[in-house]
């Protein structure tokens, strides 16, 4: 179907070059399947069942159960993002700077790619099989050492159980993102700092960490949103009873609970607000920290 090469550009009446028409399919898709659905929820959060404007839905979020769900979700996301960043950073730094054999690097990155995508239902199964009531480690500790995890207060189907499970995809994600950033730290910077009299700690505090700060922050925000929206792992691990926001919303959508459908909008709206806030915080801090970038 060869046609003649396009001549001088046509123009839309509004003065918008016709080139923008090329974005039409993408824009239509984004509007229909990302933006409108989100708008629907934002608007719905401020609508009474009869369609009139109201703050009642948001006010209705202020119950003990919902407040605690949000709080647990935020704590969970924050903790897994923080630990994920810290541990992932440690592992990446061990490989990049710690003098480990070069051969480790490739497999580690490949494995991280796999593990960061091994989330959801099967991940829950893997941890149940390992740390659940009859899991590999649980049994091993009980049979070999007489240690009863349950009696020690550990329960996989709890906040800390969830933290440990979520780390399985959070840490690799951090490794994937931060390794290139660590590679970007020039050897000369460390050496220049050293001859100027700086200790290793001073170099990290005054040079390396400030340079890495945007990447660290961005990854943290990403990990936070990642954990905050995760449903499948928690659901497969604990069923509908665990009180975190995505599970509550899941149950709400399924129609299992709560009479007021608009409360679901409010719940979802709250999730958007929190992940958006985390990201705005990130963008704001990043802009502040990147004055020195081109």
């Amino acid at each position: 179907m060869p046609t003649a090469p396009k001549g001088p550009r046509l123009r839309l009446p509004a003065g918008l070059p016709v080139a923008w028409l090329g974005l039409l399919p993408f824009a239509a898709f984004a509007v229909l399947f990302l933006i409108l659905p989100t708008m629907k929820i934002v608007l719905g959060a401020f609508q009474a069942p009869d369609g009139s404007f109201t703050f009642q839905n948001l006010l209705d979020l202020n119950t003990d159960s919902i407040r605690s769900a949000y709080w647990t979700s935020i704590k969970l996301s924050f903790m897994t993002a923080l630990l994920g960043c810290a541990i992932g950073f440690g592992m990446a730094a061990a490989v990049v700077f710690g003098g480990l054999p070069k051969a480790i690097r490739g497999p580690l990155l490949t494995f991280s790619g796999v593990a960061s995508n091994f989330a959801g239902v099967p991940l829950a199964f893997a941890f149940i099989a390992t740390l659940g009531p009859v899991g590999l480690i649980t049994l091993w500790l009980r049979n070999e050492f007489g240690i009863n995890l349950r009696a020690l207060g550990f329960n996989l189907l709890s906040y800390w159980g969830l933290v440990i499970t979520y780390l399985f995809f959070q840490i690799p994600l951090m490794i994937l993102i931060i390794t290139p950033a660590l590679d970007g730290l020039k050897k000369e910077w460390r050496e220049a700092a050293a001859v100027l009299g700086a200790t290793g700690a001073q170099y990290w505090r005054m040079v390396a960490l400030p340079i890495l700060f945007p990447s660290l922050l961005g990854t943290f925000a990403l990990l936070f949103a990642n954990a905050f929206g995760a449903v499948a792992t928690a659901f497969a691990l604990t069923g509908p009873q665990l009180n975190i926001v995505p599970i509550k919303l899941f149950a709400q959508i399924r129609g299992d609970v709560l009479g007021n459908p608009n409360l679901g909008y409010a719940l979802a709206f709250g999730m958007i607000v929190i992940t958006a806030l985390a990201n705005f915080l990130y963008i704001w801090l990043r802009l502040r920290s990147e004055r020195w970038m081109k």
Binding site: K186, E188, A192, A194, L196
Partner: peptide, 16 residues
């Protein structure tokens, strides 16, 4: 290196 009181300039601009 950090105890030698030496100054050094590198080939690539190693400014922070």
């Amino acid at each position: 290196p950090n105890n030698r009181a030496i100054g050094m300039m590198f080939q690539a601009y190693a400014l922070f």
